[in-house]
């Protein structure tokens, strides 16, 4: 059964991530008085890219492997998390450190691919990605650490469930606020789509990618954004837990959809920030997250 949970997890994410991406595009289009692409456009995009040729300026191995590592790492993260509040088969073999590690791995492989392409814009994108990673990962880490502190365990299921175990104390409310404020940065949407910034550095790290490799990166980004939305549902909305697994999954997906509505609205009503402005913002977030952890230590 535990293996089944894991498989359902992965299949659900793989199947729905492009749909949520399509939803974002549709909502942004509506805000902009546009018709927008069909809801299923991201699927078509992926299929189209998969059918194209891989172009590589100088086919070094790092450049070719980076998209696969990114994709593999995000799929593994998904395999670990207890979506529907049912821990999967692999849950017992890993802890939250593994999750954080694997998430970082995705960012690192984006950088790896970018730097190995030797493109000026890609390396600018890579350096922006690095700054973003360093500044944003702590917020995620501290979210999970609060749970781990409360239940005194680094287990994935335990610490995710543990955050709201003692109800919504001040530390949890603060952390929830910080998480929402960091959400746009987690999913690299405006105002924090600084790494890609099409108009400045032409999609930054991905500029040299095409065909199936680019499709993998795109898929990676979609999965990553769905993961962060789902993590919000798992961590901060424990009331969604019902006795029936299928019902819980459906409720959680509805919450994920709501988070995506929020992401779309924020993305369509903000200009892109500069990296220096973003760093100031992230610093404040890290500080607030630290406060939340501090409060939780005292059980507040």
């Amino acid at each position: 059964m535990k293996i089944l949970y894991m498989i359902i997890n992965v299949l659900l994410f793989l199947a729905l991530a492009p749909l949520f991406e399509g939803m974002i595009r549709k909502i942004i289009a509506k805000v902009q008085s546009r018709q927008g692409p069909p809801l299923l456009q991201p699927y078509y995009d992926l299929l189209k890219l998969l059918g194209k040729e891989n172009m590589s300026a100088d086919g070094n191995a790092a450049f070719r492997l980076a998209p696969m590592i990114a994709f593999a790492s995000i799929v593994s993260v998904i395999a670990f998390v207890p979506f529907g509040f049912q821990e999967g088969f692999l849950g017992g073999y890993a802890d939250i450190i593994t999750v954080i590690y694997l998430l970082t791995m995705g960012g690192v492989s984006v950088m790896l691919g970018a730097l190995s392409s030797k493109n000026t814009f890609a390396s600018m994108g890579a350096s922006r990605e690095m700054i973003t990673m360093i500044m944003v990962e702590p917020v995620l880490a501290m979210t999970l650490i609060i749970g781990a502190l409360k239940v005194k365990s680094l287990g994935i299921g335990a610490s995710i469930a543990g955050i709201t175990a003692g109800g919504y104390g001040w530390s949890v409310v603060l952390m929830l606020a910080v998480y929402l404020m960091a959400l746009q940065a987690f999913v690299a949407r405006q105002p924090f789509d600084i790494t890609e910034a099409e108009i400045e550095i032409l999609e930054g790290p991905f500029i040299e990618y095409s065909g199936p490799n680019y499709a993998l990166f795109k898929y990676y980004l979609m999965l990553k954004q769905m993961f962060y939305a789902a993590l919000f549902a798992m961590v901060f909305v424990p009331v969604a837990r019902t006795e029936f697994y299928a019902l819980t999954v459906v409720i959680q997906l509805a919450i994920v959809a709501l988070v995506f509505v929020l992401i779309s609205l924020l993305a369509s009503t903000n200009p892109r920030l500069r990296i220096d402005q973003a760093v100031r913002y992230y610093t404040a977030l890290i500080f607030m997250a630290l406060c939340a952890v501090g409060l939780s230590v005292y059980g507040i």
């Binding site: 942004i28 902009q32 008085s33 546009r34 789509d193 108009i199 369509s268 903000n270 200009p271 892109r272």
Partner: peptide, 16 residues
């Protein structure tokens, strides 16, 4: 200008 600072909503609305 909206588009250049990554604010496409201004872009679309102004052009509408």
């Amino acid at each position: 200008a909206g588009h250049l600072i990554g604010f496409d909503t201004v872009f679309m609305q102004a052009w509408r």
